[in-house]
């Protein structure tokens, strides 16, 4: 990945939560995150169809 090319695309959305990161840290961390993001986006939305997000009770059947 060309970090210099990628950085402007990442910067507007990162970081969240008000945690300060220097530009140097952003470059390092963005490169790591980009791999995961690409792998996630390789999943075709059409194949997910109407699948709703999981919750932590994904397969729970019992009522508490």
């Amino acid at each position: 990945m060309d970090e210099r090319t990628d950085l402007p695309r990442i910067l507007p959305t990162a970081p969240t939560g008000g945690v300060p990161l220097t530009e140097e840290r952003l470059r390092e961390v963005a490169a790591q995150w980009e791999q995961t993001r690409r792998a996630l986006r390789a999943m075709d939305d059409a194949d997910l169809g109407e699948t709703e997000p999981a919750t932590i009770f994904a397969w729970r059947t019992d009522e508490r």
């Binding site: 970081p15 990161l21 961390v29 995150w33 996630l40 997910l48």
Partner: peptide, 18 residues
């Protein structure tokens, strides 16, 4: 710090994959 960079849409997609 990686976790701070995630777009909400990526997070939701991960939950749909889950």
């Amino acid at each position: 710090e990686m976790g701070l960079m995630m777009a909400a849409t990526d997070y939701v997609k991960a939950q749909r994959i889950r």
